[in-house]
């Protein structure tokens, strides 16, 4: 899942247009409930099942995209 696709998921879940490759999910208003919805979208698109702590470690589209690639 590339950075743009992850950014699109952030935008959809956070319901805000202004997400860039380096936007921090939790700074942009994400909480643990919305985090699960990012992870379910990632799982649907890639089959990769990440945990909540993975998003805490990699809270930007850039970092999360790398994490997905490593886990795939």
């Amino acid at each position: 899942m590339n950075v743009d696709a992850v950014s699109a998921v952030f935008r959809e879940v956070l319901e805000i247009p202004e997400v860039t490759a380096d936007s921090d999910f939790f700074v942009m208003g994400g909480d643990s409930l919305l985090a699960t919805r990012v992870l379910s979208a990632v799982a649907r698109a890639t089959g990769v099942e990440l945990e909540f702590d993975d998003l805490l470690d990699a809270p930007t589209p850039n970092a999360l995209s790398k994490k997905i690639a490593e886990a795939a």
Binding site: S32, A35, T36, R37, S40, A41, V42, L50, E51, F52
Partner: peptide, 20 residues
């Protein structure tokens, strides 16, 4: 730490997607 339960985050995400 925090309030996140030790359950599959992807499973909880599917539940919240369905509820949403």
């Amino acid at each position: 730490p925090g309030r996140f339960p030790p359950l599959s985050a992807v499973a909880l995400g599917e539940m919240f997607d369905a509820l949403e």
